[in-house]
C-alpha cells in the first residue's frame, strides 16, 4: 500500500486519490476486474454494432440479411462470433461475481480469488457449448 505522500496525482486535482493501476500487484482477481471493464467496453462498441447490423439487416430484407449472413458465417465472422460469445459470458460471469460481492459476500482474499478463477471456467465452458451446438446444427 502506498503512503499518503506517494499517492498518485491525476489531473489538476490536488486531492488525494485511492491507489491506482500501477500500485496493485497482478493477481487473478486484479485481472478479472480489468477484464470485466475491457469485455464490457468491447461489447458496448464492438458487439453492439454487430448486433445492430444483424437486427437492421433482418428488418431491411433478404438481400441485406444475406450480406450479414455471408460475413457472419465466413471464417472471420465465426472467429469474431466465438470471441464475442466468450466476451459476453466472461462479462456475465464476472458480473455475477460483482453482484455477489455487492452483498458483502466473497470479499475475503481466497474466496475472491477462487470466484475470479471460476469465472474463466464458466465463460469458456458456456462458449464451447454454445458454439459446438451452432457449428453442429446450423449448417454453417
Amino acid at each position: 500500500m502506498a503512503t499518503a505522500t506517494t499517492r498518485p496525482r491525476v489531473g489538476q486535482s490536488a486531492r488525494p486519490l485511492s491507489p491506482h493501476l500501477s500500485i496493485w500487484k497482478w493477481r487473478v482477481h486484479t485481472i478479472t476486474s480489468i477484464t470485466h471493464r475491457i469485455t464490457g467496453n468491447a461489447m458496448a462498441f464492438g458487439g453492439v454494432v454487430l448486433f445492430l447490423w444483424w437486427l437492421v439487416a433482418a428488418a431491411t430484407g433478404p438481400e441485406a440479411y444475406a450480406l450479414f449472413y455471408s460475413v457472419a458465417t465466413g471464417w472471420v465472422g465465426v472467429v469474431v462470433g466465438i470471441g464475442l460469445t466468450w466476451v459476453l459470458f466472461q462479462h456475465m460471469a464476472s458480473g455475477v461475481r460483482h453482484l455477489v460481492m455487492d452483498t458483502g459476500a466473497a470479499l475475503e482474499i481466497n474466496a475472491s480469488k477462487t470466484f475470479a478463477t471460476a469465472t474463466y471456467f464458466v465463460s469458456l465452458a458456456l462458449t464451447l457449448l454454445t458454439w459446438a451446438v451452432i457449428l453442429l446444427t446450423k449448417g454453417i
Partner: peptide
C-alpha cells in the same frame, strides 16, 4: 441474454 443466446442456439437455422 441467457434467453437470447439459448433462443438463437435452439432455432433450426439462423438464416433470414
Amino acid at each position: 441474454l441467457l434467453w437470447f443466446v439459448a433462443s438463437l442456439v435452439r432455432l433450426p437455422a439462423l438464416d433470414y
